[in-house]
Design a protein around this nucleic acid. Sequence first.
DNA 1: CGATCCGGTACTTAAAACACA
DNA 2: GTGTGTTTTAAGTACCGGATC
Lengths: 355, 355
Amino acid sequence: MSERNGSTAVRGATLLDVAERAGVSRATASLVLRDTGRVSEATRQRVRDAMAEVGYVYNRSAAAMRSNSTKTIGILVTHIGNPFFGELIGGLQEALGAAGYSCILASSGDDAAQQDRAIAELRSHKVGAVAIVPATTSRQDYSRELNELELPHVMLTRHSGDLGAPFVGPDNVLGGRLAMAHLIEHGARSFAYLGGSLAIHNRTERRRGMQDALAAAGIPTTALVDLPSGRGSQDGLRVGLELIDTHPLPDAILCHSDNIAFGVYRALRLRGLATTVRVTGYDDIATAELWEPPLTTISTRPAAIGERAAQHLLDQIEHGVNEGFVVMTPQLVIRESCGCTPDRLDALDATAPVV
Amino acid sequence: MSERNGSTAVRGATLLDVAERAGVSRATASLVLRDTGRVSEATRQRVRDAMAEVGYVYNRSAAAMRSNSTKTIGILVTHIGNPFFGELIGGLQEALGAAGYSCILASSGDDAAQQDRAIAELRSHKVGAVAIVPATTSRQDYSRELNELELPHVMLTRHSGDLGAPFVGPDNVLGGRLAMAHLIEHGARSFAYLGGSLAIHNRTERRRGMQDALAAAGIPTTALVDLPSGRGSQDGLRVGLELIDTHPLPDAILCHSDNIAFGVYRALRLRGLATTVRVTGYDDIATAELWEPPLTTISTRPAAIGERAAQHLLDQIEHGVNEGFVVMTPQLVIRESCGCTPDRLDALDATAPVV
DNA sequence: CGATCCGGTACTTAAAACACA
DNA sequence: GTGTGTTTTAAGTACCGGATC
């Protein structure tokens, strides 16, 4: 076993080693490395061979120091474990990787202080930009703060209300409208919107879409009961029970997320009300189609949002253009919880003619 | 809007700026920064004030270059979106952060080639060590390869069979034994183990634990049917249907993961067999207690594994000691799918006396 | 406290190759 | 054949910002 501890790290081969082996100068080797400059093909190949022979590993730190820029992007989300963010990150990493950038991930735990620490962390790594899902408790003009730090950025999924700030996220108004319109088509006339934090704009946006749909169908907005909650399935259970125990049962429940819907399912079963109410979710997580009944939901295609966000950042740092507020079209994924399978919720459909 | 593009990044304040403002030398400022050396408290405070005033941001690249070490650790997992890994990463980041290290995350998509690329990426960032969930298709002696790269590391959750390699993961033998023993206590006498890849050691280990429990109860090992599958819930549905359609229905089904159990639940419902078979999962994901019936499962406490892995790495890079193969104790989480609620599966318990 | 070092990068300079009058 | 101009190719070197002596 070789001697190895914090103080005696072995230095690897440098560009100078490569250059000497290839019989060229360090500068030339650098040009070959970056595929730029005017170097003959024969020399290029010799340098590349030399790199392979000595097991050369690029030193980003050295490059960053001189050029004061790194091909590195920071990604900051609230909860790494959230599958939605997992897909989002996947889309981002893939698109950024294809453009030659590497990513550093950080997680804020949805806490503003930790978020500040993470940003400092990323800045000390000299990231060229950050893609950030802002913490719920972020300061209102957070985007401007980042601008003052000269840090190109794009907000993901959540925005702070400033429509001039760089942002990529789902069209929540449309998503809310799609879900509500579908339930109205099924004949539902009374509704509850369960879950989600009032502090987040996407909730008010979805609500607006829902009310647009109600208005279009000539249904009074008072037909929509509204109960917020935390973001876990447990919160969905809690708020589901709250609805059942303190309100008349609506024809349909629109859940703020699939996770919430999961808790609501359980609340309905606990009260013996399973499959007596139409339910929709939001997000379309991987297991949604395996539930009982399979969940009708709104897909926001997080990977596509990630790819678009990568584009947004690249446009900023490579072309200096800021695309501003970008909204992505969600999709209604129809399964069975809305009542779309006749042999499952036919009792409901019998009393409410499908339009 | 300020002019900002790839080529005209603004340089921030340096340690020299801080030093001049505080009226000390750069060397002194460096000592204050790292909380070392003999510097008077008055000077320390002056330097700290100066840092705050000029908005100083530590430049890790510069530090890394000189000291050839970064307080940065790489974390490489197969799927960032997997909630299990999310918790694992959370535990790692917290423990490493407390020790003054920052983390860089990468994802291999469970592909060996991508894993190689990610390792190269992390090496170019000069990480001091990596915590890695190896891809299923990793080469057998992967740990030795990393040793040859002089890269301290610890394998997480999965190991390659080399018990001398640095590893932290759950005790799969015990986990399998706990689940099986509990089902046997319930009176079950025929079993199926569903899901999981044969290529991964943890599967054979859990199976060994299950057979230990069978042997201890005097039940022949042929009482355990074994069907592997992919890792998603959809795979669980597939393998669940396969079991139901091609085998006699066992008393109990042990699932390789909660995700698999989810698909198995659906398979049982589709065949009209819901709550006629005892089911256990593995992992204890957040929603498991909300299922119908709430899932009895084995908790591997991924956050604890992450913390332990952080300790493992710190021991290597700071004290030069390698703790080798470390195994964490899992816990049986009893809910209802095993038959533990009398009023739910009492039909089962009537025919099979609880020990 | 000043000097030096780490390993790439950006810029300057220069040699060689080629074109064309 | 010679001289001048242009392009291609490669070398030389200052420099970035902390850490160390």
